[in-house]
Design a protein around this nucleic acid. Sequence first.
DNA 1: GTTTTTGCACTGACCAGTCAGTTCAATTTG
DNA 2: CAAATTGAACTGACTGGTCAGTGCAAAAAC
Lengths: 225, 225
Amino acid sequence: MSVRISGETVPVTIGAMESSSTTPGGSSRREATRQKLYEAAVTLIAEQGFSATTVDEIAERAGVAKGTVYYNFASKSVLFEELLRHGVGLLTASLREAAERTAREGGTRVDALDAMIRAGLVFIDRYPAFTQLYVAELWRTNRAWQSTLMVVRQEAVAVVEGVLREGIEGGEFSDEIDVPLTAAALVGMVLVAALDWQSFQPERSLDDVHSALSRLLQGRVSGRP
Amino acid sequence: MSVRISGETVPVTIGAMESSSTTPGGSSRREATRQKLYEAAVTLIAEQGFSATTVDEIAERAGVAKGTVYYNFASKSVLFEELLRHGVGLLTASLREAAERTAREGGTRVDALDAMIRAGLVFIDRYPAFTQLYVAELWRTNRAWQSTLMVVRQEAVAVVEGVLREGIEGGEFSDEIDVPLTAAALVGMVLVAALDWQSFQPERSLDDVHSALSRLLQGRVSGRP
DNA sequence: GTTTTTGCACTGACCAGTCAGTTCAATTTG
DNA sequence: CAAATTGAACTGACTGGTCAGTGCAAAAAC
């Protein structure tokens, strides 16, 4: 069964619903297979892009039969969409944890931003392929998973925005800063610096990158150290 | 072959002209067709990605037959590669111009960076689709045009790095800043803030975005205005 | 005995690239 | 001038190949 919505034919899961996309519990065997498929898909799609990556390739790299892919995911797009949700979920949790830990330990909001920068770098260092793929898809229009991306992006950016707002309320930040734009700029700063680090100077340490970004955050670029 | 007219040596398009891919002169008809193809390709690829965009679509949107695409470009990849070169060339020229203008008018290096931020924003505002597509491809590995991208990226980033280095030499910037990383971070800041502006709050003015980024650059986030 | 996976043949849509033929503006010829 | 010629530019039907998704019987795992 399917329904036409704005020119796209969208499948409607009625009845059944077995495990559903959000994959809450499920048998651990199934979950392990899904995990293998995520891992295979993420690197292939990061390298080649979504359309250029075939389901056969994904199955082969995961060491699984093609039929298994379709047993676990309704389609190639759905696999990808769930992969996105999964990955950004990890990032958001990590950012939130960094902000909360800083607050708990009595740090300032600048400390919190700094901790989030580090958390972002650690994430990118650990999941470079995912980051790459996410950046490549985020600003595209007219794609099936567009709305998923927007929701998921907002979750992550909202964490940064939250810290900025708290800082303004507490008088730590100027109340003239533009919260959404500044948050986006900070995210971009970390994202692009980290991707460049990975791609073009992988020999640098995470601490190097972190301190360069800290300095920029704290306006210690112009003037003496 | 060439002809002298009023002291100038003017090339005359006679016969063959093979043309070659770099398209220096070429007949104006041909050049116009190429331009139409660039414009059609840039928006389609930005929306859908390279692999998901068909040559038929590009031809149709350009109002041209499919054969014409192959008459003008050796392949779909070559069309794309030349498009990349073309676009980044425009950006680099614009950044360089901003830096030079500031220097000529006696501005500081911070002024130069600020002018380059603005130039970047103006560029992205004018060519959002190109920017989007560039970001989506830049960090991919294993693609045919990988080397083109690296060269072309370095040209643009080098302009920023140049200004940073001059600022360090002149004592205006701390000599502890990490030039390549800071340049990448600055580019990322502008890129992501601008793309987010375009995608998620297009009603904001360029000046709004510019002043938010200026503030961040000058470390006026924490503390009073 | 139920769930999950396998292996593999098959289909129908789609698409990059080709090529024989057409158009047309500029040039040459009578 | 007009007719004939030239060749670059363009056309679009066609081809060979690829790939998402299907169907299913048998095996494996739990």
